[in-house]
Design a binder for these strands. Structure first.
Lengths: 136, 136
DNA sequence: ATCTATTTGGTACTTTAGTATGAGCCTTCC
DNA sequence: GGAAGGCTCATACTAAAGTACCAAATAGAT
């Protein structure tokens, strides 16, 4: 938003400067009108392309954003959510335990709890549900 | 590629026409140089933005299309692939068996085979791998 | 400071998942 | 008409996953 305003401000400024410049050069007759025209055309073509790239960079998010609000709504604790993400990566309880430096029993407890909160019967179903809710 | 050449060809043509136009108007003195300049600037700004949008439209393909070729490459049979999709939906072997009207033993065999072909240790990992390969 | 929710962990148990092996039945492809 | 691959199913087993119940330490909020 602020960037857009800034860019357009600079554009207007550039336009005004170009007008002044063209006047002076026309009066003094140093430059031919064709060159000035070509310069202006290329400059604004470049500006157009530049704005294009800017807006392109801001785009790559339209797909899916993780909805952390829904995580709270579900009552998932921080640790449970962490375990859920590992489950979704395809890790076993044992592997998750090793990764998070806790025992397998702990992971089992977490998984069991998050299954209830997600209303899932299996971890594979939990993955599917989580994807539909955009929380992973 | 061809479109790019076409666009630039048209650009050059437009430039030449503008030059001719500016010469005539200058000679005849009908229009002031500032207006012509402003017109050229806006026109090329628009062209720049237009090119931008064109290239943007060509981008939205990185979304995700199911790559059936990769399914063949992996050597997954029709039935195995079918089972894989059900697994990814979070169903148990028993549920899949009921859905496809075969015994649970059959599903176990299919799952076991597809795990080998996908180089996965668990069905959850198979899901993850399949998503990365864009086959589900 | 007290209370609540979280995190951790254990035991004991049931249920799924996954492996190994063998076998019968089809279809397709030389 | 074999050979090969795919689909089906079974048994027997091992390995995970999941449930139930309990309990202690911790952190955060009131």
């Amino acid at each position: 938003m602020k960037k857009t305003v800034l860019v357009f401000g600079l554009l207007i400024l550039a336009l005004l400067l170009l007008f002044q410049f063209s006047k002076y050069t026309l009066i003094s007759g140093d430059l031919q009108i064709e060159y000035i025209m070509a310069f202006v055309a290329l400059a604004f073509l470049g500006i157009g392309l530049f704005i294009n790239k800017r807006t392109q960079k801001q785009r790559p998010l339209p797909n899916r954003e993780i909805d952390l609000n829904k995580v709270e709504e579900l009552g998932l604790s921080k640790r449970e959510y962490e375990v859920l993400k590992e489950v979704a990566l395809g890790l076993s309880n044992q592997e998750i335990a090793g990764k998070l430096f806790v025992s397998e029993s702990t992971i089992k407890t977490h998984v069991s709890n998050l299954l209830v909160k997600l209303n899932a019967k299996r971890r594979t179903q939990a993955i599917q549900i989580s994807k539909n809710l955009n929380i992973i």
